[in-house]
Write a protein that binds this DNA or RNA. Sequence first.
DNA 1: TAATTTTTTTAGATTAGTCTAAATTTTTTA
DNA 2: TAAAAAATTTAGACTAATCTAAAAAAATTA
Lengths: 217, 217
Amino acid sequence: MYSFTEENYLKTIFYLSIGTQEGVSTNALADSTNTRAASVSDMLKRLAEKGLINYQKYRGVTLTEEGERLALLVIRKHRLWEVFLAEKLQFGWDEVHVIAEELEHIRSERLIEKLDAFLGYPKFDPHGDPIPNAAGEMPRFIYRKLSEIVEGTTVVMTGVSEHSPAFLQHLDKAGLTLGCQLKVNEISDFDKSVSVLIDNVRTLFVSHEVAKNLLVK
Amino acid sequence: MYSFTEENYLKTIFYLSIGTQEGVSTNALADSTNTRAASVSDMLKRLAEKGLINYQKYRGVTLTEEGERLALLVIRKHRLWEVFLAEKLQFGWDEVHVIAEELEHIRSERLIEKLDAFLGYPKFDPHGDPIPNAAGEMPRFIYRKLSEIVEGTTVVMTGVSEHSPAFLQHLDKAGLTLGCQLKVNEISDFDKSVSVLIDNVRTLFVSHEVAKNLLVK
DNA sequence: TAATTTTTTTAGATTAGTCTAAATTTTTTA
DNA sequence: TAAAAAATTTAGACTAATCTAAAAAAATTA
Ligand SMILES: [Mn+2]
Ligand SMILES: [Mn+2]
Ligand SMILES: [Mn+2]
Ligand SMILES: [Mn+2]
């Protein structure tokens, strides 16, 4: 059994490892976990001891196979609870993350398997992120950002790459939800803002900042 | 915000206080929390400091009003989660307690109010125990034990005073569930076992040990 | 490549919660 | 009511997770 803290470190290393081969740096971990580099060094020693990370002093860390499996099981629990909160308890997609941060540490395999069944074996969480399976495996989808789509193309909104309540509430106000159809009418030369036709019914201007964080397929 | 450990102590003091005016002893707490008396003494000092218990050295403890309110809020969460696990996830009433021991510490008022609504504002948990309200108030019902019912009387099973999986599984095997009607046919002079007519259809012999732990009205 | 800056690790403390062993207080017994 | 037993508290240590300050290593810059 691993502590909440250890599980959080594994999860953080997993997220910081995405899209890079290099090890995650001590400072990056200190930033993400709101601790100091010294505390991170201590924890890395312990996680290495337990065979969950590959760690050489001053060299950064990567997860071992077992470490990644554990990280993905925590992420599985996090995302399943988010689905529960959003679909069954009617929480907004901007509210579910903080609560799931606590629920993800509840230790009962049977609980999570039954929850999965109760939810109808969802494949994605409320933000469009894929849910790992019970073996700790997660399909990797490669989506493009709305900001990279050329004029005239029609795409579907499949996810977000920014999960802050402020951003998600902004999308709510704009009426941008997962699954909506987006036709890129025009991209402004001036500020790269995007004019999009939503679900063939209304036109919306999306700032480049927002477009960068909308994942589409 | 109080720690898991502090919440567990409050809950334990609450349960050990039931049916007595006297303070709860250090040893009783050590037994119930699987710690040593010395550890309990330490914790009692801290809880007293925070105004959650009335504590004088060597005299045992009682909860203050605030301490009792907090204990009842933890119990509220525990019992609501038990209802969720039993009714929505199809866990047996013998399985829900251990999982609820973890879930009861999730800190989100909105979560528990939404869970309450989702469950249809249940009044009792799967073992027949009443669920405190959001203000930390709990109705007190006084039920009798089946072992105290005189021959010829008909009663309804409303709860259990023993919550071990072994006992609950035993009741499952015997087909004794909350709400069933029990007519006391005969009480044995020899071993105090009770012959009961269940829901007017079948007769069952219930040992005194079991009868003592069945609450009826 | 030598000096400077940045990053990381070590050293030494702190806090919550726990322990064992010893001291103290209360309760029971004779 | 004094001695013995039981219950409780104190003393002193330990572990996990954190911190600040100092030392050491790596990376950058001149
Ligand atoms: Mn999340
Ligand atoms: Mn977490
Ligand atoms: Mn319970
Ligand atoms: Mn608990």
